[in-house]
Amino acid sequence: MKALSQRRRHPLTAVALLLMGLLLTGGLYAVASGANEAKAQTSTFSAEDIAEGEKLFIANCATCHGMEAGGTETGPSLVGVGAAAVHFQVGTGRMPLQMQGPQAMEKPAQFNEEETRQMAAYVASLGPGPAIPSEEALDTSDADVAHGGELFRVNCAMCHNAAAAGGALTQGKFAPALSGVSDAHAYEAMVTGPQNMPVFNDATLPPEGKQDILAFLNYIDDNKSPGGAALGSLGPVSEGLFLWIAGLGVIIAFTIWLTSRSS
């Protein structure tokens, strides 16, 4: 707060205040409507977690996101993004960012689960946001796979492909393949909308629906294609390519053998 008071007379103060006001009203509005299910779950984190998380944050994230996580030119504000966003971004290795590009790339996580939780605790303490999903939220034992499939096709398949094999977006961005993504990360992606992915809040996609989607994803992940090798599940392009290269290749080899003279 000291930093703030020093900059009170800065010409951008009015803008900042206005933005904060807007964010606050927006946030409160969201909380009041219950749309985000954004119960400020700071309670599950201890004060120690938050303190440790802040240290980690300052050492690893503040360059881009600012000392108070208020955002800089190179990184957005993290106030109100919630623990789920941190757990997703750091847990999948997307953050810390390796380099600027069309979008943050997935890579081996740089922090262990404990450190990630501590950073999540710190960010969650800055403002209410989606929490890391609990065990119950990820429980897919009585989920409806078929309904999950329907929801997946309407809400996800256009970017991630009907078989979750990924797809292209504009200007070098892409929607990644979802095979091997953990339930928690997939859930967090839905509630936080990382990067260009839209947010699927609990009002427009209820938690049961999200569980159904997870169950569907797990089903197609666990069960290989009954028809044999799936050729990347990329549809007619990979099938056509395979036919031209492998299918015709083998047939041409046979024609050469067939028309050659026996020794």
Partner: peptide, 15 residues
């Protein structure tokens, strides 16, 4: 008519 999958393509000969 509402959903669609990424990578919607015809078979190779209509490509």
């Amino acid at each position: 008519p509402s959903p669609i999958s990424a990578g919607t393509q015809p078979d190779w000969y209509i490509g």
